[in-house]
């Protein structure tokens, strides 16, 4: 293949990818555009991409009639706490399973992995009754109970510890006089920064996009997370497209921004799993 031919091929690939990217982006752009349209324009055919008469009515009524900001806050605090919990539990459990290989630990590890096979929906209802008995419905703690541990996270950290933390490092610290917790905090955690960042991103979005669990745990409007709140705009009979679009746009923007900021961790951390750093 000559250089020109290769250039042409590369160009065609780029064009294809750009078109595909636009296709993926179109619904999101449409959603944001819809948020600025009047109800009449929204159902007009053919649909307009740029609103003819941009209006902020949708935002005004969404922010005025529903506690949207409170819901975002609920989601945010739930997602952040869940992320912290998952990062801590995964790093401790993964480290212990990788570096303290007594025989029964493999059974424990197998049990951890087994929980990944059972869909959350299967034990969601029994868990709900426990949360209810604990009096934690409509609270952040109640939400968190379902999102404290992630079996994939334990697996991810175990693999990373095995691949990138040699035994000698921990033994050297022990000889130097470090206690086990000290070793975990000052040696293991700093060395796991990469995979933990990736895990944090996964955990955050898992909690942020969770729907079924917040839906049943939060029974009061004020306790809803944003996902549950958004669902309110479509009832069995009607969908208030304008408000739903405006609310979705409000939610979409922070998520996309967060993803763009964390994208490198997200891709690298997962891609380099099990590889030597």
């Amino acid at each position: 293949m000559t250089r020109n031919q290769r250039k042409a091929t590369d160009f065609m690939i780029d064009v294809g990818l750009v078109l595909f990217g636009l296709l993926m982006l179109a619904p999101l752009l449409m959603l944001v555009a819809n948020a600025f349209k009047s109800p009449a324009e929204m159902v007009a055919w053919p649909p307009t991409f740029i609103p003819a008469n941009p209006t902020l009515d949708n935002f005004r009524s969404v922010l005025g009639e529903t506690p949207l900001l409170l819901w975002i806050w609920n989601s945010l605090s739930f997602a952040i706490m869940s992320t912290i919990a998952i990062v801590l539990t995964s790093s401790i459990a993964g480290y212990v399973i990788a570096k303290f290989p007594f025989r029964s630990i493999n059974v424990v590890f197998a049990l951890f992995l087994a929980t990944a096979i059972v869909p959350f929906e299967v034990y969601m209802i029994p868990l709900y009754f426990q949360v209810k008995d604990l009096g934690m419905l409509n609270t952040n703690q109640g939400l968190l109970i379902g999102y404290l541990v992630m079996s994939f996270g334990i697996f991810l950290i175990r693999q990373n510890v095995l691949a990138s933390i040699p035994d000698e490092l921990i033994e050297a610290a022990r000889i130097d006089g470090a206690g086990e917790l000290w070793i975990y905090w000052h040696i293991v955690l700093p060395l796991l920064r990469g995979p933990l960042a990736a895990l944090a991103v996964l955990a955050f979005f898992q909690a942020w996009t969770s729907f079924a669990w917040p839906m049943i745990v939060a029974t009061r409007r004020a306790a809803y997370t944003i996902e549950v709140g958004l669902a309110l705009f479509s009832t069995g009979y009607t969908v208030d497209l304008g408000k739903l679009s405006a609310a979705s746009a409000c939610v979409l923007v922070p998520s996309v921004v967060a993803f763009v900021i964390l994208r490198r961790n997200f891709v690298q951390g997962v891609a380099s799993t099990g590889m030597k750093e």
Binding site: P166, A172, I175
Partner: peptide
């Protein structure tokens, strides 16, 4: 840590 020893490992650790 109470043995009052220091160890140098093959991979330096």
């Amino acid at each position: 840590k109470h043995r009052d020893i220091a160890m140098v490992f093959q991979n330096y650790a």
